[in-house]
Design a protein around this nucleic acid. Structure first.
Lengths: 338, 338
DNA sequence: ATGAAAGCGCTAACAA
DNA sequence: TTGTTAGCGCTTTCAT
């Protein structure tokens, strides 16, 4: 006895009735499962088209796949993110998955709330970009849903995957370029961070910086300065850095987030770049390439990073359980700032 | 006969069993519905806490609210968006709603796919920021879910709400400021756009620009130039603009998207700003405030815009059906670029 | 005030 | 190959 929906909504039942088949048949067509004749499939597809039917993700979430994945961002104002998210979206889209985004505001409890919220919607996978939470806490979520992490090195993690630029290599690359240009007193700008520095991208870059100095016999000259990420205080800290009597000959800067304002302030202070001060930064964002900026910067190929994470998620969804920790080679984009 | 869940998942049943009450009771507590004694409520809340229970959004979506709303962005690289989305998120968060974001990539079919996908997840409301689709097409979705639009003027729409800066006033404000400074030959930079211009924010600003000129008896001197938004070609177009023999005394620029590169290129070309060329732009993004930029720009108070849209959605969810079209007053942020 | 039970729109055994 | 049906975890009448 067919119990037709009383609402106007087109459901799988409406389609089944219209096509004169069972709901199971429609479901099978939807998921291209085995055991459907071309004839039946054709009828169903026509009804779907005719009725404008779209399966309810909510209902799907109660049994199987939702064919949607989530991305968690720390904030929206990092210019490094758009190409990364695009690369990810594109790769997931080709596999038939929708991408939804949540913004964690760099606050741990907002971040966990968002992760849980996405899990509660039964998304099929989750990409975390530069998450505050990590390690132990992530494993807890990782057995509820496949997880990939970008922007945090955790090569020992077993429950989830990571995709990162080889930040160590990037730091080494940039520092070596400065050394090759003749600079000897090279300092590094890092991020002030109250979290454990182990695994942080800037810390990996710092290790690369120190390695390059050591290789050139300049180990003793290594100096790191820590600058805040908060826009309000950043400028003051950079200015007081530039006012130091022991200003180095060159800076390797962990990110364009600091690098672009730094080159701006230095020039405005009357310093010639690269005459008085050499500068290489990291991320190669659009701002670094601007006419009046022209800041050399290490490129992370963010699109590839995103696509790599997408592949990790897709293969996890298909059943892989052995962890993957992919490292992508960075490239120095040379500009006349050093 | 209690049929306990076989999976390890904590469901409403697990909680009911633990608290020794019915699932209906738990559901009522969850939604603070009427008819629950403080005693029962207390027991249930304790069990929820103890078991770490979180209701499944997917299951909720099949009957009532999901307590999540969606935001559709055209792209992620507009620096105007982060504070807007933050204002929205914050207001929705206070009302107990989660915010999920989709990125439309400025392609119509991606946009519609995303809107439908969010509706299929049974989100309770949808905010569209600068959507490509509009009017008729939106009404179709508006009777499936409450919709608010930012960044597109559609004061006649009845099915959904809009929240916008008073762009006409903003254009008038900026142009009048240039006139007051003594400029007479003032041109405007608009966006190249193959859509209908009616309703577009830049077009409203252009109307304000022309109104201000007319009010000052300068109607005849009005000139608009149209520049692409695509980063690849934008610079070339701006350069050829600056190379014109009939360069105006000042520009009013529809957005910092063009304004910031323009001031950069003009300075690099050797022009003194404001000596040789006066400049006022729109959006007051972070870049406009940078030391080496200092571009006067009309502020849109994006946070308020977001909060306004949130209020529209929340009241629609509560049952309002009469449309709201809110206009927010802009403010000119004066900087030495004119 | 509390609980039993009927769905919501799907998926996936299992039967036919 | 096709159809029947038992849930998935919740909300919401309707009894009690």
């Amino acid at each position: 006895m067919d119990k037709p929906a009383r609402t106007g909504r087109v459901t799988i039942r409406t389609v089944a009735a219209d096509a004169g088949v069972s709901v199971a048949a429609v479901s099978k067509v939807l998921r291209n499962a085995y055991g459907v004749s071309d004839n039946l499939r054709e009828k169903v597809l026509q009804s779907i088209e005719k009725l404008g039917y779209r399966p309810s993700t909510a209902a799907r979430g109660m049994r199987g796949r939702t064919f949607s994945v989530g991305v968690l961002l720390v904030g929206m104002d990092n210019p490094f993110l758009p190409p990364l998210v695009d690369g990810f979206k594109h790769a997931m889209g080709k596999a038939g998955y929708k991408t939804l985004i949540g913004v964690g505001e760099a606050r741990t409890h907002v971040e966990t709330a968002l992760i849980e919220s996405m899990i509660d919607m039964r998304i099929d996978g989750l990409l975390l970009i530069g998450p505050r939470i990590s390690g132990e806490a992530l494993n807890k979520y990782a057995d509820q849903v496949p997880i990939a992490v970008i922007g945090h090195h955790e090569a020992g993690a077993t429950g989830f995957d990571t995709a990162n630029t080889n930040d160590f290599e990037g730091g080494r690359l940039a520092t070596r370029a400065l050394i090759d240009k003749g600079y000897r007193d090279i300092a590094m700008l890092c991020l002030t961070d109250n979290r454990r520095k182990e695994g942080e991208v800037w810390y990996e870059r710092e290790k690369g910086y120190r390695a390059a100095l050591a290789e050139a016999g300049l180990k003793k000259s290594a100096r790191s300065f820590r600058i805040t990420e908060r826009p309000d205080d950043m400028q003051a800290e950079l200015l007081s850095l530039l006012a130091r009597p022991d200003l180095p000959e060159a800076f390797f800067c962990w990110s364009d987030i600091h690098g672009v304002p730094l080159i701006n302030l230095a020039r405005r202070k009357g310093l010639n770049i690269p005459g008085d001060l050499g500068l290489i930064s990291f991320d190669n964002t659009a701002a670094a390439a601007l006419p009046l900026i022209e800041l050399a910067s290490v490129d992370q190929t963010p699109g590839r990073l995103g696509a790599t994470a997408a592949d990790q998620l897709l293969t996890r969804i298909k059943g892989r359980t052995t962890p993957r920790h992919d490292l992508i080679a960075p490239e120095l984009i040379t500009r006349p700032s050093f």
